[in-house]
Amino acid sequence: MSGPLQTQDRHSRSRLFPGIGPEGQEKIRRSSIAIVGVGAVGAAAAEMAVRAGVGRLTLIDRDVVELSNLSRQFLFDERDAEEVAPKAEAAARRLKAIDGGADVRGVVADLDHTNALSLLRDHDVIFDASDNFETRLLASDAARSLGVLSVYAACVGDEGLVAVTRPESPCLRCYLEVLPPAGSGPTCDTAGVVPTLPPTIAGIAMTEGLKAVSGARVSGGVLSLHAWDGAWRSRRLFESASPSPRCPVCADGRYPALEGEGASEVVKLCGRSAVQVAPAARERPDLAALERRLLRVGPVRRSEHLLSAEVENVSLTVFADGRCVVRGTGDPLRARTLYERYIGR
């Protein structure tokens, strides 16, 4: 950036806000945030962070831009979709055009127990905008292990959740206890999502992120909101909750996800364009409920022991023990992405 732009003060309006001021803005400039997931929530959060002057961002996402993302995902455009650009890279490119001085690194990878600590360390905030509970528990355990504040930002359909986890708050594992079984809930790709909701959640959550890095007091508890039926409403829950005495992380200082507990196994099957995704919790999925959700997006056949669905030019076969064989791709990352979208956890 040179010429007339250089002499203008990009962040004057933030500095003028008494809650931020010049000192707060300087803290924001010197801060770093790791954003896990650059989908609808993560992309909007990243854009807001860079515009607000966060000095360093690491964006982590295994996925590529598709046309169906553009209804609600910031940063990406038609050219990114045509080029099948990796989201983390396309996002970093666009963010550097917004602020050439921002240090933005895009990592095209699946966050897993072998890379979580090295990718997430050395940041002031871990911002969880991922799309599945396996990654969310991993991000939560990693944040606790690193002693870093984390922000949880999630939505599906017309409901959203935002929670800030400080050292004295319960962590995600305190609430969930165990990884939910595969196929146990709706995903944006089976239940849909109100297109304005993810950026709304991102805005609420990144506001907490900015508060955290600038030294302001963050909100406690879990904010739950509903954006469509009836009046827009929100409720703050669990404000006084303490970490659970039964939580391995908070009570025992053990980090199950970092030890690989809960990790799904993604294995390319020999000699075929097929990949098996085996979730760690080999519980019997509710095949009838899964069939109902998948019928909204494509043909499904179900028997007592398995279910087979056609989506996006691949077939997904889900077995009674929760294993899923994805046929039509030999790429483990693509298979995992499709699994998260349509089966999900």
Binding site: D131, G185, V222
Partner: peptide, 10 residues
């Protein structure tokens, strides 16, 4: 009592 159903999508 406070009850919340967790959503995990992003």
């Amino acid at each position: 009592l406070e009850v919340v159903e967790f959503v995990g999508g992003g």
